[in-house]
Simulated assay, not measured.
Amino acid sequence: MPRPHGFAYEQHGATAAVVISHHGRPVTTLRGPRADRFLEEVAAGDAQLVMARWTGNYRRGNERTARRHPRNQGS
């Protein structure tokens, strides 16, 4: 499974907000307790994987298997 890449985040201290971007484009903004929980996860694990998971932009590894399924083959 390819590793996620191209993610970055900026923490804005005054509003306790975190903006996650992918290849320079803002994807999501987290505020309050969600931002705190995100920052804890980034500090404890693989930052790229955590950001991909929080934005919903990650592959689950089953796309190729689903493509080969008979119902997805077409007529």
Rank of each mutant, 00 (worst) to 15 (best):
M1V: 10
M1L: 11
P2V: 03
P2Q: 09
R3W: 14
R3Q: 15
R3H: 15
R3L: 13
R3S: 14
P4I: 00
P4T: 01
P4Y: 01
P4H: 02
H5V: 02
G6L: 02
F7M: 03
F7T: 00
A8N: 08
A8D: 14
Y9V: 00
Y9C: 04
E10N: 11
E10P: 03
Q11C: 10
Q11E: 11
G13P: 15
G13K: 15
A14H: 13
A14W: 12
T15I: 12
T15D: 14
T15P: 04
T15A: 11
A16N: 14
A17E: 15
A17L: 12
V18Q: 05
V18S: 05
V19H: 11
V19A: 09
I20N: 03
H23Y: 12
H23R: 09
G24T: 01
G24N: 03
R25G: 08
R25N: 09
R25K: 15
P26M: 08
P26T: 08
T28L: 12
T28P: 08
T28V: 14
T28A: 13
L30S: 05
L30V: 08
R31H: 12
G32E: 10
G32C: 06
R34G: 12
R34V: 10
A35F: 07
A35W: 11
D36M: 10
D36Q: 14
D36C: 09
D36F: 07
R37S: 14
F38N: 05
L39E: 07
E40K: 13
E41V: 00
E41K: 12
E41A: 13
E41D: 14
V42P: 01
V42I: 12
A43E: 13
A43L: 06
A43C: 04
A44L: 08
A44V: 06
G45K: 07
G45E: 09
G45N: 08
D46W: 03
D46H: 04
D46V: 00
A47T: 08
A47I: 05
L49C: 07
L49F: 06
L49W: 10
L49H: 08
L49T: 08
L49Q: 13
L49E: 12
L49S: 12
V50D: 02
V50G: 04
V50H: 02
M51R: 01
A52C: 01
R53S: 07
R53Q: 12
R53L: 06
W54C: 06
W54H: 09
W54G: 06
T55M: 00
G56C: 02
G56D: 03
G56E: 00
G56F: 00
N57M: 15
N57D: 10
Y58F: 07
Y58S: 00
R59A: 06
R59C: 07
R59D: 05
R60H: 05
R60W: 06
R60V: 06
G61P: 02
N62D: 12
E63F: 00
R64N: 10
R64T: 09
R64V: 11
T65K: 12
T65M: 11
A66W: 09
R67S: 11
R67G: 06
R67C: 07
R67P: 01
R68V: 11
H69N: 07
P70C: 04
P70I: 08
P70G: 04
R71E: 10
R71M: 09
Q73W: 03
G74R: 02
G74Y: 02
S75W: 14
S75L: 13
S75I: 13
S75T: 14
